[in-house]
Amino acid sequence: MQSKRLGWILLAPTLAILFLFGVVPFFYVVYVSFHSWNPFAVNPEMIFNGADNFRQIVFDQAFLNSVGVTVMFVFFAVVSELILGYFLAQAFMRDFPGKAIFRTIHTLPLIMAPIIVGSVWKLMTTPSIGIIPHYLDEWFGITMNIGTSVPAAFATIVIMDIWHWTPLVTLTLIAALVSLPPDPFEQAQIDGAGKRQIFWHITLPMIAPAVVATVFIRLMDALRTVDEVWMLTGGGPGSATRFVGVHIFKEVFPKTNYGYGSTISVIVLYLTIVTCWLLYVTMLAPRNKRD
């Protein structure tokens, strides 16, 4: 009994901080989302407007567009990171000359702040000045201009995200692969299973929880991407890379549309939870049921 009380006492500061900085702001955002509130309006007060903001969001073409480009971005970035991360993890499971150095270099992007990553990529991709457009033009005759080309801007952001976050996926998958017992693999080899069969029927099912956890983390991160995109394209050209995070930022900060911005935040949180739940239901729940 005493140890239980001690446990709560020790937990109390953490819970208090979580409550103050996590729960209270969340409920405040939900509260604001039912109001019209722009402090630079003639009437700067918060005015309750029921579900008007939620109704508006359904017809808000700019928001729907931002959801569309975000989904595309998340799909291309996360899937690429997962595939690339798996192959790199497999590579790092083997010995090769310079492995330690390569692994260190490969992990370096992880320690960079997103805003720095955005700045670096901006320098590298500025039309005609950056190293990437320069060599694309010199070696292949390809003109790359992220200021005018929607595909170029979008692809650059996806590649930048892959460069930045694949090391995280690699590290997670290395941890999962290292922990796998050797017996099933040996038995499968004795039974004559091919590499592909071993991957689909043994490796993948066994590392599935790690894969799902990694996808969850990357999915949530990718859905709220702002800094890198802000630095690189500012959401352009036009609204081609105006992801949900950038859209919310523009709505809440420069436009000071706090009410509607809060509504978008709530909806995006809801969509994120639903997406993660669907992922869990389709990938992990059946397996847990079987177990």
Binding site: P237, G238, R242, P254, K255, T256
Partner: peptide
């Protein structure tokens, strides 16, 4: 204008479409 940023942000996305030729 006390509404400087608000009007700018409301019109800027359309402005970018002009720049893109849309």
């Amino acid at each position: 204008y006390p509404f400087h940023a608000q009007v700018r942000e409301a019109t800027a996305p359309i402005f970018y479409q002009i720049l893109l030729g849309d």
